[in-house]
Amino acid sequence: MDIVRLQSEPINIDEALQTLHDESCGGQAVFLGTVRNAFEGRESRGLYYEAYHDLAIKEMERIAEELAREFNIVHGVMIHRVGELVLGEAAVLVATSAPHRAQAIAACQAGIDRIKERVPIWKKERWATGEAHWHHDPANLGETLL
């Protein structure tokens, strides 16, 4: 994969598109995960992301190798933000190019699914009420964050 990165700066989609470009590719797929204004019906003002940088990069590189092996992609980009994000910002980008569209789309879908499942990154919801809670915190059982 061409780019695997965690960054605090906004994601530059043009960089990803330029990286995907290849005359052997007939398909490019781009997924952007963006910050929503609500979670499970509760109003939100944004997200804070933290990562265990060293292991997160290793795991993203493992996923990149899997995508190359399983889907025959030619180019790929995986970027995840860390730090404070406001509503509407892109938190994650997965982009792939392949000779055919089905490979590019399937690889892109698998990439984001595996990032969400395996990469040590955590998000904290900043509620409109001023409270903030980590997702998956068992202390919030019975609330909205499981």
């Binding site: 992301y49 990562a51 994650v92 984001i112 990032i115 499942e117 955590w122 998956h136």
Partner: peptide, 10 residues
């Protein structure tokens, strides 16, 4: 050693 709670990236 890292103690790693369930992840929630994306």
């Amino acid at each position: 050693l890292a103690v790693i709670p369930p992840v929630s990236g994306g």
